[in-house]
Amino acid sequence: MRFTRWASTIEQKRAWAGFIFILPWLIGFIYFFLLPFMKSVLFTFSNIQIGTEGMTTTFVGLRNYRATFLEDPDNVRLIFSSLGDMLYQVSIIVILSLFIAVILNQKFRGRLLARAIFALPIIISSGVIIYLLKYDVLAQSLQGNKAADLFQSSELVQVMIQSGFNPKLVAYFTGIVNGIYELVWKSGVQILLFLAALQSIPGYLYEASSIEGATKWESFWKITFPMISPFILVTTVYSIIDTFTDFENPVMKKIFSLVSNMHYETVSTLGIVYFLLVLAVIGIVTAIISRNVFYIEK
């Protein structure tokens, strides 16, 4: 009886210790996310007036939703444009990150320096830096600096059009080429995640496959790819969120513009719908990829 009471006391102490450990996060979540989110939801059903006495709200039902998406079709276009950009950007980022991580996992001279270079986007907070670098490159290009054309595909466009390619296909392909510089800078976290996944694979699996006569290519698809599949899911979800919330995303630009002009009803409505869209995309992608994720049973 005493042992049961002592065990129960230990479990309660551990439960309280766990609760105290997550309490700072819980307070921050409620104060900085949940309460502002609930207020934003209320704003979507209200007309907001800002006067000398502060902010006053009047309930208007679904009028803000009709005005945002029916009276202003530009918002719908921006959302679909953002969704289309996400599809190809995330695909390229995940594939490129895995490719670079596989190379960096090999043994060669200067490996530490190479890893440090690809970790630079994380170290220097690439969001603002990439914006400055990109527009500095474009400014130099407009001034006639040929070195600035390194990240542009103007010559490639001319070659493809002269070769008879469809203009839409040319625009799509060259858009990807022009964005490679930025996409590489967005791949820092993903590269580190894949690198950690590759280093966690037991070496004896490759030794056994080599003894059985498997080639490097077969070992990659039969061992490496299944073993890192959980990290593929993680990097894909991370890339989706990072792409949707990037400050150069057309919807995010529109949201910043509306906030600057104090259109709080419209920005709240657009932001909530955009938030639900991101959740839906993450849910669909997670459901699809999770079916093929391999977990080691211990």
Rank of each mutant, 00 (worst) to 15 (best):
N178Q: 07
N249T: 09
P226M: 04
S257L: 04
Q12P: 00
L113S: 08
R115D: 03
M38E: 10
V41M: 12
I93D: 04
I48R: 03
F21T: 07
L112E: 11
V273L: 13
T245H: 10
K298H: 10
F294T: 14
T243Q: 07
T57A: 14
M86K: 00
L83V: 13
Q106P: 03
K107E: 15
N47E: 15
E155T: 13
Y274H: 05
V184L: 15
L26K: 02
K298D: 05
Q106Y: 06
F194N: 06
I180D: 03
V281E: 09
Y274W: 07
E248A: 07
L183T: 00
T9E: 10
K298A: 11
G127M: 11
G271H: 03
V177I: 14
I103W: 08
W6Y: 12
A116N: 14
I284N: 05
G18S: 03
V128A: 14
Q89R: 15
F19Y: 07
I92H: 03
G110S: 07
M262R: 10
F3Y: 04
V76L: 15
F173L: 12
L193K: 06
I272L: 10
A171M: 08
T245M: 13
V60H: 05
P24A: 04
S8M: 08
S163M: 12
L133W: 06
T215H: 05
K146I: 15
E207A: 04
I122G: 09
K134D: 13
T236E: 06
V177D: 02
K298S: 12
V234P: 00
V281T: 10
G127N: 12
L62C: 08
F69L: 01
I129S: 11
Q12N: 09
M38F: 15
F118E: 01
L279D: 01
L276M: 11
T243D: 02
F294A: 13
E297R: 13
V259R: 03
I232T: 11
T58Q: 14
N47W: 12
T236M: 07
L193H: 05
E212P: 12
P226K: 03
R109G: 13
G51T: 06
L78M: 10
I30A: 13
G283Q: 10
L183P: 00
S153R: 02
L113V: 13
L112W: 12
V159Y: 08
G110A: 08
I130L: 15
R63A: 12
L83E: 05
F108C: 07
T57M: 11
F244M: 12
T243Y: 01
Y135A: 07
S210T: 14
Y31G: 06
R2H: 08
F21K: 03
I232D: 04
A147R: 08
Y31S: 08
K253E: 05
M262G: 01
F45M: 12
T215F: 02
I95L: 14
W16F: 03
T58D: 11
S260A: 14
P167M: 00
Q162R: 14
E297G: 09
Y206W: 06
K186N: 11
E265D: 12
I211Y: 03
L150W: 08
I22F: 11
Q106K: 15
Y172G: 02
D85L: 15
D149L: 14
V90M: 04
I27H: 01
F118I: 00
